[in-house]
Computed example of a mutant assay.
Amino acid sequence: MTTNEHLWLSGDPEADDLLTRDPFALLVGMLLDQQIAMETAFLGPWKIAQRLGEFSPEAIAAVAPEEFVELCRTPPAVHRYPGSMAGRIQDLARAIVDQYGGDVTRLWTADDGGFVPGPEILARLKALPGYGEQKAKIFLALLGKQRGVDAEGWREAAGDYGLDGYRSIADVRDAESLHRVRETKQAAKAAARAAKAAKGD
């Protein structure tokens, strides 16, 4: 099993250390990756850890909702929409505690210590609060490409995100690859706008 020994997703060494060693932090970072810059999203778990004094599904689930909203809202905010995202983070934490005993790795690890097949991992991710199909596929690709989760059929289950290239956060390993992924995303948005405009004509 090969892994990228140290993740580079936020560009902040301490935040990336947390993401590297704590799969729940990685799961939360992926949850936050919408409507803000990718590296800002993956800085979120470290901000929470600094303010809470610890980082675990159990600890986050135990905080009173209004207190957790304030924690996420404190400048620099965890997300552009700290109120709604605070609720999603706590919902995700509760799901991991209730369904997986607080152990995120059980999403992709079978009882015999091997990996659950890729399509099953995708289904489990999609069942989590805040995880739609696209987010689930990107996270599966991140597990396969950088965390050594060589589950059977993971590339096929991840769709285009499982391919080589610069399509998502799963392909980010340094500042250069982050820039290339951002270019790919911007090009895709421009193409979608052009197609919509042409259809309008």
Rank of each mutant, 00 (worst) to 15 (best):
Gly159Cys: 04
Ala64Glu: 15
Trp8Cys: 07
Gly11Pro: 14
Thr20Glu: 10
Val172Tyr: 11
Phe42Pro: 06
Ser56Ala: 10
Gly53Leu: 08
Ile36Met: 15
Glu58Arg: 01
Asp160Trp: 11
Ala194Glu: 15
Pro65Glu: 00
Gln99Asp: 15
Leu31His: 09
Glu156Gln: 14
Arg94Asn: 07
Asp16Lys: 10
Lys135Tyr: 02
Ile89Thr: 06
Gly114Thr: 09
Gln34Leu: 10
Arg73Gln: 10
Ala136Met: 04
Asn4Thr: 10
Ile96Met: 03
Ile138Met: 14
Val28Asp: 02
Ile138Thr: 08
Gln50Ile: 02
Arg147Phe: 12
Leu178His: 04
Glu67Trp: 01
Ser10Phe: 08
Lys145His: 10
Ile36Trp: 09
Val181Gln: 09
Leu27Glu: 01
Gly102Arg: 02
Ala170His: 10
Tyr131Glu: 14
Leu19Asn: 13
Leu9Tyr: 06
Pro65Tyr: 13
Arg193Leu: 00
Ala175Phe: 08
Ala191Thr: 04
Ala175Ser: 09
Glu54Arg: 12
Ala93Ile: 01
Gln99Glu: 15
Trp108Val: 06
Glu70Tyr: 06
Asn4Met: 13
Val149Lys: 00
Asp201Thr: 05
Pro65Ser: 08
Phe24Arg: 05
Met1Cys: 13
Val116Lys: 12
Ala123Phe: 03
Thr74Arg: 15
Ala170Lys: 09
Ala110Pro: 08
Met85Ile: 06
Gly118Pro: 14
Met38Leu: 11
Arg51Gly: 01
Gly130Tyr: 00
Gly132Cys: 06
Asp160Phe: 03
Thr105Ser: 15
Thr2Pro: 13
Ile138Lys: 02
Ala37Arg: 09
Ala15Phe: 03
Thr109Gln: 15
Asp201Trp: 11
Glu70Gln: 13
Ala188Lys: 13
Trp154Tyr: 06
Arg21Lys: 11
Trp46Ile: 07
Phe55Cys: 02
Glu156Trp: 00
Ser56Cys: 03
Gln99Gly: 05
Ala188Val: 00
Ala188Ser: 11
Pro76His: 09
Ser168Cys: 07
Pro57Phe: 04
Asp150Leu: 14
Glu152His: 06
Leu26Trp: 00
Ala37Gln: 07
Arg182Gly: 07
Gly87Glu: 13
Ser56Thr: 14
Ile89Cys: 07
Gly11Ala: 12
Asp112Cys: 09
Ala187His: 10
Phe139Cys: 02
Leu71Asn: 02
Val63Glu: 06
Ala61Gln: 07
Asp22Cys: 10
Asp112Ser: 08
Glu183Phe: 01
Asp174Gly: 03
Gln90Tyr: 06
Leu52Tyr: 01
Ser84Asp: 12
Ile60Lys: 05
Asp33Asn: 05
Asp17Ile: 02
Pro75Phe: 12
Pro65Lys: 06
Ile60Tyr: 02
Thr184Cys: 08
Thr105Ala: 14
Gln186Val: 04
Glu120Leu: 03
Asp17Lys: 10
Ala158Gly: 05
Asp112Tyr: 14
Glu183Lys: 11
Tyr100Val: 04
Glu152Lys: 03
Met85Tyr: 14
Gly153Ser: 14
Asp33Met: 02
Gly83Tyr: 05
Ser168His: 04
Ile121Lys: 01
Ile89Gly: 00
His79Arg: 10
Ala62Leu: 09
Asp174Cys: 02
Ala123Gly: 08
Ala136Cys: 04
Arg180Leu: 15
